[in-house]
Design a protein around this nucleic acid. Structure first.
Length: 492
RNA sequence: GGUCCCUUAGCUCAAUUGGCAGAGCGGUUGAUUCUUAAUCAAUAGGUUGCAGGUUCGAUUCCUGCAGGGAUCACCA
């Protein structure tokens, strides 16, 4: 039982304290990461020793190969792993026997020494001094297969990260992507802003919200389902280019591409239209892919996805007509419904907007390479401006990659009277039982009445980009601490 | 929420038709001064997810529950 090993470790911790050794000391002067050492001394020849070069690093002990008067061990830090070599004749009998007795897999250790390359060519650190930095009481997962139990992986992600190097790397990539996005947008003059998470009204998307309560005002509130309506208020207020990267909360089902709490970026640029935003998102995502993947054609689930610019631009109605024969602009509701029925896809709510959404769902999977799907019908786009030339459609596009909607953007509707009418239609849908329809936000209308410049806006779900760039089959693989059912275990 | 599948040692996995619950890693003890999934010897570690049922006998068959996965529905 693990308890037995745990008891053994606690016994050792107590022994250490009795010997005047703190098993959880305060500090270690770590001057190099494992990666920095590897980079700096990779040029060494087999067997070459650089006794005058001093290095100091620290990390978690991931493997120990103890021998009589010498040991090899491997330490892991955020950069990777490096081997260390300790010998009794170098550190002395007392320290060496301490190492053999008290250093276990999983412990944190700090080492000082010099670099050398073994006879088999592995760059290693020859240990002159070491310090136990933190005792682990738990056993590590199996060293060869790593951790595979999905339940532990999701509930105790830290165990996956510490044992499976690819998990740590996956999350490093996630945050490198977000960092790159910020750098690129900041370079273009966008200002990163914040908006409230708790709303009285939800809007900006069609989704069921999480409900909560604010004690101070004794008021029911919702967690935000989008960032849109508050970000637009910044434009009314005088900001030209803003963006926010933050969590949205949608009280809907979980799937390989859906998670109730997910990371959304929204961006608004005054005086721009949806074509400008198309160029911007194409450049931004392409830059991120090139920087993180180092190439423009990536592999996802064995499939090639080509991010080379320019990306395909397809009118939504044309695409659906080509694939299904349905004309979402001119066909009657009855006709659209009958086509849906042919494909055994019947929406619960038989309102035209839902029929169109359903038809789109049927063809979405056939899009693999980055593609802009354009000109969505007005009826399913309550916040988008009417198309400047065509009837019944908006200046909107969605970026679709590998059957997933990655981004959604429009020339933003800034006519307050028109916006009010669109909200009224949404309100009617709500009354008819569509819990996902948007709520009437009169303060937002009021903001528009003060005037919002012509604006191009974008929403982009970065989790899905992270999936693509880490070849992860599920969004839960790229959300560090995904939602799990409340545990029954008392001691987890 | 529906349907199907999974749950055995800390971890990764076995267990023939329903017939003594096993291995590797990890742990402990010992040997070992260039190992790298180190090696060698010894050893501890189990209420087979939980609760019932069928049976002489259940890890194995049945029912319920819990957790997890896949998929469908809703959604991005």
């Amino acid at each position: 039982m693990s308890d037995e090993i745990r008891e053994q470790r606690i016994k050792e911790v107590n022994e250490l304290r009795e010997q005047g050794v703190n098993p959880y000391p305060y500090k270690f002067e770590k001057t190099e990461t494992t990666g920095e050492i590897k980079e700096k001394f990779s040029y060494l020849e087999k067997g070459q020793v650089l006794e005058d070069e001093k290095v100091s690093t620290a990390g978690r002990v991931m493997a120990i190969r103890k021998q009589g008067k010498t040991s090899f061990f491997v330490i892991k830090d955020v950069d990777g792993r490096i081997q260390a070599y300790i010998r009794q004749d170098k550190v002395g009998e007392k320290d060496f026997s301490f190492f053999k007795k008290y250093i276990n897999l999983g412990d944190f250790i700090g080492i000082k020494g010099f670099p050398f390359k073994t006879h088999t060519g592995e760059l290693s650190v020859f240990v002159e001094e070491f310090k136990l930095l933190s005792k682990t009481l738990q056993t590590l997962p199996e060293k060869w297969h790593g951790l595979k139990d999905k339940e532990i992986i999701y509930r105790q992600r830290y165990v996956e990260m510490l044992s499976n190097d690819d998990a740590l790397n996956r999350f490093k990539i996630r945050f490198e992507i977000l960092k790159t996005v910020r750098e690129e947008l900041n370079k273009k003059g966008f200002i990163e802003v914040e908006t409230p998470v708790l709303h009285y009204l939800t809007g900006g998307a069609t989704a069921r919200p999480f409900e909560t309560k604010m004690n101070a005002f004794d008021a029911e509130m919702f967690m935000r389902i989008s960032l849109e309506l508050y970000l637009k208020r910044y434009l009314v207020g005088g900001f030209d280019k803003v963006y926010e990267i933050g969590k949205n909360f949608r009280n809907e089902g979980i799937s390989y591409k859906h998670h109730p709490e997910f990371t959304m970026m929204e961006l608004y640029q005054a005086y721009a239209d949806y074509f400008d935003i198309m160029d911007l998102v194409e450049e931004l995502v392409n830059t991120v892919v090139r920087k993180v993947a180092g190439k423009e054609v990536i592999e996802y689930g064995g499939k090639k996805i080509d991010f080379t610019r320019p990306w395909k631009r397809v009118v939504m109605a044309d695409y659906i007509k080509e694939k299904l024969g349905a004309d979402i602009i001119n066909d009657s509701d009855e006709k659209l419904l009958s086509i849906l029925e042919e494909h055994e896809s019947i929406p619960e709510i038989k309102e035209r907007g839902h029929l169109i959404d359903k038809l789109w769902d049927l063809v979405e999977d056939s899009v693999v390479n980055p593609t802009f799907i354009m000109e969505h019908p007005t009826i399913i786009s309550p916040l988008a401006k009417k198309h400047r030339e065509k009837e019944n459609v908006t200046e909107r596009f969605e970026l679709v990659i590998n059957g997933m909607e990655i981004a959604n953007a429009f020339s933003e509707l800034n006519d307050p009277v028109e916006q009010f009418k669109r909200f009224e239609h949404q309100a009617k849908l709500r009354e008819e039982g569509d819990e996902e329809a948007q709520m009437m936000d009169l303060d937002f209308i009021s903001a528009l009445e003060y005037g919002m410049p012509p604006t191009g806006g974008l929403g982009l779900g970065w989790d899905r980009i992270v999936m693509l760039l880490t070849d992860s089959p599920s969004i839960r693989d790229v959300i560090p601490f995904p939602m799990v059912r409340k545990s029954n275990e008392e001691n987890i």
